[in-house]
Computed example of a mutant assay.
Amino acid sequence: MNIVFDLDGTLIDSAPDIQAVSAKILGKLGKPALTIEETRNFVGEGARILVSRMMAARGIEETPERHAQIFGEFVAEYEFAVEKAVFYPGVVDALAVLKGGGHKLALCTNKPELPARAVMKHMGLEPIFDAFIAGGMTKNPKPDPEMALKCVADLGGGPALYVGDSGTDAQTAANAGLPFALYTEGYRKSPVDEIPYDWAFDHFDLLAGIVAEAQARHRAV
């Protein structure tokens, strides 16, 4: 089965790295860094929206020119911000089990391409994934279905499961016509019962069972 994963808030907690970048950028402007809670609330819809939210939270007037400047500085720092990212519990073993079971895995993230590739390399994820799509590699970011559908196509097509942690991921899966497994311990901004999902799980030890159920459901159709 094809399994498409979100990255930040699903496989890894990268908020401490993003917070550190915000401290550098905002510090130059005489503004305090984002808190870790703000950081987790701001991620998920791409770096451009994150920068807009960061500017608004610190009272920085957003003009196209000002946003472009801060965005450029943010991405330049973001590419090298990998040292504080950590896997969520059970992720490494779950990915190994799925890969060993013959499933094809794709990574689908709104994170810009260079920072996404940098953190993948740092955390040893490159050999695990058979397809990869990041922010800027397609015309439309999530929740538009383009990125998820491109991942499935790059995996060779066929039945797929989308795994993510947020309402954005849920909408992406719905737009792409894919069943959705919600990881409840990531960056979601809404209560679990307000996010549409086919399965919800709080530890990656449960994911292999969900994949088996998704396969059985597909065969029964």
Rank of each mutant, 00 (worst) to 15 (best):
P64L: 09
P64K: 05
P64A: 04
E65H: 12
R66E: 15
R66Y: 01
H67D: 00
H67A: 03
H67I: 01
A68C: 12
Q69S: 13
I70T: 05
F71G: 02
F71T: 04
E73W: 09
E73Y: 11
E73H: 10
E73I: 09
F74I: 04
F74A: 03
F74C: 05
A76L: 13
E77Q: 14
E77I: 10
E77C: 12
E77L: 13
Y78T: 07
E79M: 11
F80H: 15
F80C: 12
F80I: 14
A81D: 04
A81W: 08
A81T: 11
A85V: 04
V86Y: 06
F87C: 13
Y88F: 15
P89A: 06
P89C: 07
P89F: 01
G90K: 01
G90I: 02
V91Q: 00
V91K: 00
V92K: 13
V92E: 08
V92R: 14
V92I: 12
D93H: 07
D93A: 14
D93I: 03
A94E: 02
L95K: 00
L95H: 01
A96Q: 14
A96F: 01
A96W: 04
A96D: 11
V97A: 09
L98V: 12
L98H: 02
L98D: 01
K99V: 00
K99D: 00
G100I: 05
G100V: 08
G101H: 03
G102Q: 03
H103I: 02
H103S: 08
K104W: 01
L105T: 02
A106L: 05
A106M: 07
L107Y: 03
L107P: 03
C108H: 05
T109L: 00
T109K: 02
T109P: 09
N110A: 14
N110D: 12
N110G: 14
K111D: 10
P112G: 11
E113N: 12
E113C: 12
E113R: 14
L114T: 15
R117M: 11
R117K: 15
A118G: 14
A118R: 12
A118F: 13
V119R: 00
V119P: 02
K121P: 04
K121H: 14
K121Y: 12
H122D: 11
G124Q: 05
G124T: 09
G124H: 06
I128K: 00
I128P: 01
D130L: 06
D130I: 10
A131I: 03
I133L: 05
I133E: 05
I133H: 03
A134T: 10
A134Y: 04
A134W: 02
G135R: 08
G135D: 00
G135E: 01
G136T: 08
G136S: 08
G136F: 07
N140T: 13
N140G: 08
N140W: 10
N140K: 14
P141V: 08
P143E: 05
P143K: 06
D144A: 11
D144V: 08
P145V: 06
E146Y: 07
M147N: 05
M147D: 01
M147E: 03
A148S: 11
L149A: 09
K150N: 14
C151A: 10
A153R: 13
A153W: 08
A153D: 15
D154T: 09
L155S: 05
G156I: 11
G157A: 13
G158M: 06
P159M: 06
P159S: 11
P159A: 04
L161C: 05
L161G: 04
L161Y: 04
V163D: 00
G164I: 02
D165K: 05
D165F: 00
